[in-house]
Amino acid sequence: MRGNKSMNIGSKRGAIIINALLLAITIAIFIFPFFWILSNSLKTYDETMQFPPQLLPKTPIFANYKAALDSMPFLLYLKNSIVVVALTLICQFLVIVPAAFAFSLYSFRGKGLLLTLVLFGFMLPQQLTFVPIYLLFGKLKLLNSYSPLVLPFAASSFGIFLLRQYFMGIPTEIIEAGYLDGMNNRQIMMYIMMPMAKSALFSIALVSFITRWNDYFWPLVMTNTQKVRTLPIGIAALRITDGKTEWNVLMAANMLLIVPILAAFSVAHRQIKEALIHSGIK
């Protein structure tokens, strides 16, 4: 009996060690690129070119950050990035939540077709849709404003689909209990469905935030003036045409871009965990 128990503990310990080791490797793989950006952002140009590459700069220099900031109207781009992401998220939630609610709870004529259309939007790549959308906004004289950066993303097919699946997983008993208590549809959506789908909502928000925040192609194509341009364009402008690119400055600019994402992650990470614990859905 005793021997058996200790063996159990032993194998458990082994499993824990293997687990920890695998975790450490995974973390290293994920952390390294960030570490590498940070390290190179503090090197001189010649150090970034050194071979074999050095893990750390000899003496960290912060001049690259100044050079990166000076190379673009940083505050303007930052403001634009924040405005575009915030507006997109607000629009998305105004559209996604009621749409997912309707698709999951109601049955109505043409529901299948509409859902197929939503999924179809999910499958079309940006490169296919940008020309007609550009022409549309050109005709509406809305290029060079926030509109073409926000409106095309106001309805996220991915978000609607994901949230619908999540809503459908909520036990009907809970919803019926709500109706019995005299709640209307809006109240059911806001006070039962949304809190229970907190984790899904956070995931959707996070994915939207990251894709919009990092997007280079769309804002570049849709805007011709600095006024409404976002950070990634300023960073891409640090790549030299026909010549040597100063990777150290580029990496410093990248740090400025990813810090908000990391911050959002660390905040949302806790929220997602909490949401999972309190959601009551297994």
Binding site: S71, L238, R239, I240, T241, E246
Partner: peptide, 8 residues
């Protein structure tokens, strides 16, 4: 189409 110092 020129970034960096040449853009400046």
């Amino acid at each position: 189409s020129m970034g960096g110092a040449n853009g400046a």
